[in-house]
Amino acid sequence: MRIALLTYSTRPRGGVVHTLALAEALAALGEDVHVWTLGRHGDTAFFRPVAPAVTVHAVPFEAREEETVGERIVRSIDVLRAAFARRRDHYDIVHAQDCISANAALPCLRTIHHLDHFTTPQLAACHEKAVVEPYARICVSQSVADEVSAGWGLTPTVIPNGVDATRFAAGAADEAGRKAWRERLGSYVLALGGIEPRKGSLDLLEAYAALRASDPRHQDLTLVLGGGETLFDYRDYRAAFDARARELGVPVVVTGVLAEDELPPLVAEARALAMVSTKEGFGLAALEALAAGVPVVARDLPVLREVFGETVAYAATPAEIALALGKVLDTPPDPAAGRDLAAHHTWARAAVAHRAFYERIRAQDASAPIPRTTMTSAPSIASSGHTQRR
């Protein structure tokens, strides 16, 4: 099969990591895989090298300083759509990984990693259209599939994520890399993915400050927030986070985007990883931490209980997060169960499941062609009044 996978960025966000790993695993099965993305910031390639068997198409996307978030979303869709439309007939499968690429690639199938609620009208419309209009849907967890079923009456297929467990286990053995982070950061709790409402960053800050204040053994602990890039405008939230950190008088380090070889030792050297997102689709960063033998404190969400079972500690409020962090720091759990769980989730297994799904879609299309609505007849993102159903 000739497969197009589409994502919205070259930078390391969860959906982008998923796209590249899936592309490489499908290519290893002998499929002809092409990844399409927007080359923001002048990027012509992804944040990490991609296997030579995968063809990368990075569509140039210039920055515009005065552009609003909504305008940038609309333009992102338009630019990617215009470039991809010239080649879409070359592919047997068109598979989008987010609302921007789905809107650009319709008709397509789409992975719904998680559901969100946006106040920016263009983002709300993008989100809604990318749930409703694809002709087939995948979710990476049953919990998100159930949300889609409850909200829209649709039935996605569930195919869990993989994880590069070997890479993060190697990070645990990288003494030089771990030492470099230890000398730079000291003892730290790590969170990945940026400072934004969905990540629960303010809750984590409050929990971290409470932990330091409650126990002198943790007063030298630093909160480290690593990686992450988003198209969305969270400047007010980031300003509130920074102001609260100053009020609390606690040390916070924000690394920004990390080089590919920096991440595994950064994760492995952490004393704990905190994943306190208010919404998640799977929790890939937590699985990477478990692969490195690092204890995890997770928000008590159905999706995270589905994926992680008893391998992580759960908490719902800042006070509970502080308590859970204190417990795993004082008495780290046996990492064996977490490592076993991570080893179970392979990208090879995910690729086999995706290929079988693609083959079913092609067989259905051959016997009863899927309606192919054209982009010109579909409501535009700029004018659509759709909002997410709750």
Rank of each mutant, 00 (worst) to 15 (best):
313 A>F: 07
296 V>T: 05
309 G>D: 12
298 A>P: 13
333 P>W: 04
325 L>W: 01
296 V>N: 02
310 E>N: 15
312 V>L: 11
299 R>H: 15
313 A>E: 14
309 G>K: 12
302 P>M: 01
321 I>R: 00
320 E>L: 01
320 E>Q: 14
332 P>F: 12
313 A>K: 12
329 L>E: 09
316 A>W: 03
304 L>G: 07
301 L>E: 06
333 P>A: 03
338 G>E: 10
317 T>D: 07
338 G>R: 09
337 A>F: 14
331 T>L: 12
304 L>T: 10
302 P>N: 01
315 A>I: 09
334 D>C: 13
327 K>V: 14
295 P>L: 04
313 A>I: 06
307 V>A: 07
305 R>E: 08
312 V>G: 09
325 L>K: 02
331 T>Y: 04
323 L>D: 13
295 P>V: 06
305 R>D: 08
305 R>A: 08
336 A>K: 14
333 P>H: 06
309 G>R: 11
294 V>I: 08
329 L>Q: 10
312 V>A: 10
322 A>S: 08
335 P>A: 01
314 Y>C: 06
328 V>C: 08
301 L>Y: 10
307 V>T: 13
318 P>Q: 00
293 G>Q: 06
331 T>R: 15
308 F>D: 07
310 E>Y: 02
307 V>Y: 11
329 L>A: 07
297 V>D: 05
322 A>C: 04
310 E>P: 15
324 A>R: 05
322 A>W: 05
318 P>G: 01
314 Y>K: 04
302 P>H: 01
331 T>D: 15
302 P>A: 01
337 A>V: 14
323 L>E: 15
302 P>Y: 04
337 A>S: 15
293 G>V: 10
307 V>E: 07
293 G>M: 06
301 L>M: 06
339 R>D: 06
323 L>A: 15
324 A>T: 02
311 T>A: 14
326 G>P: 09
314 Y>A: 04
326 G>Q: 03
315 A>S: 10
327 K>W: 00
309 G>A: 11
314 Y>S: 06
301 L>T: 07
304 L>S: 05
320 E>F: 00
311 T>S: 13
324 A>C: 01
310 E>M: 05
322 A>Q: 02
339 R>F: 11
297 V>P: 13
321 I>F: 01
319 A>R: 13
329 L>I: 10
313 A>L: 11
307 V>G: 10
309 G>S: 11
296 V>E: 04
308 F>K: 06
338 G>N: 11
327 K>R: 15
313 A>M: 09
325 L>H: 02
293 G>I: 08
332 P>T: 05
318 P>I: 01
331 T>N: 15
317 T>W: 11
321 I>Y: 00
319 A>Y: 00
317 T>V: 06
324 A>I: 04
319 A>D: 14
336 A>I: 12
319 A>E: 15
